[in-house]
């Protein structure tokens, strides 16, 4: 089980959190104007890297707030967590 540092609450066990997938994927501002290809890329295509992954988590059973984390998917080591809107380290 991972130990995850919520930017507001501190280090808590993984069971308190919900995973939110890859971070920094912006929804197109005007979905009706984007092509099917661009919409597919937004909706389904993911980097899925073996290595550093920027991802969203939600402290569901805590402060209930979303935040971002940087985790190495080859080792599951979390190197940073940061608040939404903050630049990625």
């Amino acid at each position: 089980m991972l130990l995850i540092a919520c930017p507001w609450c501190g280090v808590r066990p993984e069971l308190e959190f919900t995973y939110g997938g890859e971070a920094h994927i912006a929804r197109p501002a005007d979905p009706a104007s984007v092509s099917d290809t661009a919409w597919t890329a937004f909706l389904h295509e993911r980097t899925n890297p073996k290595g550093m992954h920027r991802e969203r988590w939600r402290h569901t059973h805590g402060c209930a707030r979303f935040f971002n984390a940087v985790r190495d998917t080859a080792t599951d080591t979390i190197t940073a967590t940061y608040k939404p809107g903050a630049p990625s380290p």
């Binding site: 890329a41 993911r46 899925n48 890297p49």
Partner: peptide, 18 residues
């Protein structure tokens, strides 16, 4: 599970998560 890693070598992003 490593399909995304191999396909990235051809510049493709796939609808996959491992």
């Amino acid at each position: 599970g490593h399909t995304s890693v191999v396909m990235a070598m051809a510049g493709l992003r796939l609808p996959l998560e491992s």
